[in-house]
């Protein structure tokens, strides 16, 4: 890693911490996935916010089964993850996220870019499952390759223009968990989206 890359990495870590994202360093995607499974294991069962059809028939309560979603992975990647998750007793899914709007434990995504000076991850996801996984989970774990971190918003423009010029696509900048200060300006984490954001920085 060159000195410049080192600096960018440090900047990313610093800024991500400011927005209360938890940053960890891992070797590769495999290690990132096992980190995410660990996170899932350690957390409490998901607090379901909505179950059932229609508002009136809805039930709320504690889940009894841990749910892990990773829609963006290749068959091979997913295969390994699914097996490891099953061994821990989780249900691991990668599609049909609409069936889990009431909440899941962990959503796992791979970022397409990181922006150091804002501490944010850029996720390009045309598919609705990929997007929903990061929205309805309690903890969102994003794997980001160190090589994909650019210095500033300006440096992300070329990448984004390349995608937006091509056709329909949904690009998300994600920095930190969902938050609100709408009641008496008191910062409260986890309103409509995840309660925690973890960024697993991959060496490769």
């Amino acid at each position: 890693m060159t000195e410049a890359e080192e600096q960018i990495l440090e900047l990313f870590k610093k800024k991500a911490a400011v927005v209360s994202a938890k940053v960890v360093e891992v070797k590769d995607l495999e290690e990132a996935m096992s980190y995410a499974l660990d996170v899932c294991e350690k957390k409490d069962f998901c607090e379901l916010v909505y179950v059932g059809e229609g508002e009136k028939g809805g039930r709320y309560g504690q889940a009894t089964q841990k749910m892990f979603a990773a829609p963006g992975l290749s068959d091979r990647q997913f295969g390994g993850l699914e097996k490891a998750g099953r061994e821990k007793g989780f249900t691991v899914i990668r599609e049909g996220m609409r069936g889990y709007v009431s909440g899941i434990d962990v959503g796992f995504s791979i970022a397409d870019l990181g922006i150091a000076d804002t501490g944010c991850c850029v996720l390009v996801s045309g598919g609705e499952d990929a997007r929903l996984a990061g929205m309805v989970c309690e903890i969102h774990v994003v794997a980001l390759a160190k090589s994909k971190i650019v210095n500033s918003l300006d440096d992300a423009e070329n990448f984004m223009n390349g995608i937006m010029d091509k056709g329909a696509m949904f690009i998300s900048f994600i920095s930190g968990p969902s938050r609100t200060a709408d009641i008496e300006r008191v910062l409260t984490i986890g309103v409509h989206g995840p309660l925690e954001l973890h960024v697993a920085l991959m060496e490769s």
Binding site: V18, D154, M160, F170, F173, P177
Partner: peptide, 30 residues
């Protein structure tokens, strides 16, 4: 992007809001 460098800072003293969604075209809806 130029506005984005100032807007969240000026609005809520954040470098960026937690989410910025860039929606280009009609994406998947099952």
């Amino acid at each position: 992007m130029r506005v984005l460098k100032v807007l969240p800072r000026n609005a809520t003293s954040q470098i960026l809001t937690s989410y910025v969604s860039w929606m280009t075209g009609a994406t998947e809806c099952t």
